Amino acid sequence: MKSLFSSQGHWFKGMLHTHTTESDGWLSPERVLKAYKNMGFDFVCLTDHWKVTPKPEKAPEGVLYIPGVELDGGATEAGNFHLVGIDVRDSAAFKPIKPNKEYSARELLELLRAENGLVALAHPSWNGVTCADAADIADDLFAMEVWNSGCDVEIGRGLADVQWDDLLSRNHKIKGIAVDDAHRYYIDSGRGWVMVKAETLSRQAIRAALEKGEYYSSTGPIIHDVLLDDSAITIKCSPVRKIDLVSSPTKGQSTLAPRGSNLTEHTFLLSNGIGRYARLRIMDSAGCLAWTNPVFFN
């Protein structure tokens, strides 16, 4: 069986969406980086609204700064779009030349791509973005936020499993990420992250691993490995109560640990029912989740 994380390297814990006092966050850029370092993070992408926040002069050692930005606009029937640009150019400058609501989602995406950003759809559950809304840009997105801590804390709409599967079921090959989108920090930070397997802790290596999907997303559980061949998929993880193989509508499989016990490994036979894609989701006894990226089948 082949590992989904077969590349050589080390695991690095990262934050891909968070805010500072340069927009509407409560902490300065320096304090944000220090806060995440103290929580065991290896890299942080600062994503203030319509502004690329530069690396602080007194940035702490031991945590990698990555420049990013969050743009909003593109009105939908229920809300609007927010797109996050990850690893944009340090010199990137974003200034709206018309009211935000007049920007289409495609225009926002192209602004971010013009500055070399990996573009992620932010908190689709929070602002009511549907599969139909996102269809025009979905194939050009790097990922979508399957978990957003801030949106969960604020109004209980941080989880976007349904929106992710709606896109995947329609053959949009999009990855998922878990993020904080922290603003207040005392309540909305350190609750969602990505674990990236990269050769080194550098912007180039982290970006390459993200683009290849050499990572998983989590709010707590650890995924040690995922093994796949033509007949089965096996996951090895920290102790969890439930493991789901999520696939196309009416397809997929699930296993639940007996009451009072946990699972640390499980194999799903693909012959038991699989659609055009499969992704794994695990849940521990505290209700915390972790997700792999999808694997696609002919």
Rank of each mutant, 00 (worst) to 15 (best):
M1H: 14
M1V: 13
K2Q: 14
K2E: 12
F5Q: 00
S6W: 09
S7M: 09
G9N: 05
F12R: 08
M15N: 13
H17Y: 01
T21R: 14
D24C: 06
G25Y: 01
S28W: 02
P29V: 08
P29F: 06
K34F: 15
K37V: 09
V44S: 15
V44G: 15
T47Q: 12
K51N: 07
K51C: 04
P54F: 04
P56Y: 09
P60K: 14
L64H: 08
L64I: 00
Y65F: 15
I66R: 15
P67T: 11
T76I: 06
T76A: 07
E77W: 09
E77C: 08
N80H: 15
F81N: 02
D87T: 12
V88E: 02
R89T: 14
F94N: 02
P96R: 15
P96H: 13
E102R: 15
Y103F: 15
R106F: 13
L111I: 09
L111Y: 02
L112W: 15
L121H: 10
P124K: 01
C131T: 12
A132M: 10
L141I: 02
F142C: 11
M144F: 11
M144V: 03
E145P: 00
W147N: 02
G150S: 14
C151P: 00
C151W: 00
D152L: 04
V153N: 09
V153Q: 10
I155G: 03
I155P: 00
G156L: 01
G158A: 07
L159Q: 10
L159A: 10
D161N: 15
Q163V: 12
Q163P: 11
W164E: 07
L167K: 01
L167G: 01
S169I: 04
K175T: 05
A178H: 01
D180T: 08
H183M: 05
R184P: 07
D188N: 11
S189T: 09
G190K: 06
R191W: 04
M195C: 03
M195D: 00
E199D: 03
T200E: 06
Q204G: 09
R207W: 10
L210D: 07
E211K: 14
K212P: 07
G213P: 08
G213F: 09
T219K: 07
I222D: 08
H224N: 14
D225T: 11
D225M: 08
L228Y: 07
I235T: 10
C237P: 12
S238I: 02
P239Y: 02
R241S: 12
S247W: 04
S248A: 04
P249S: 12
P249C: 06
T250L: 05
G252C: 07
Q253I: 02
T255F: 03
T255M: 08
L256S: 11
A257G: 06
A257K: 14
P258R: 15
R259L: 08
N262P: 04
H266I: 04
S271W: 06
N272P: 03
G275H: 07
G275I: 01
Y277C: 01
A278M: 05
L280N: 02
R281E: 10
A290T: 06
N293W: 03
N293G: 09
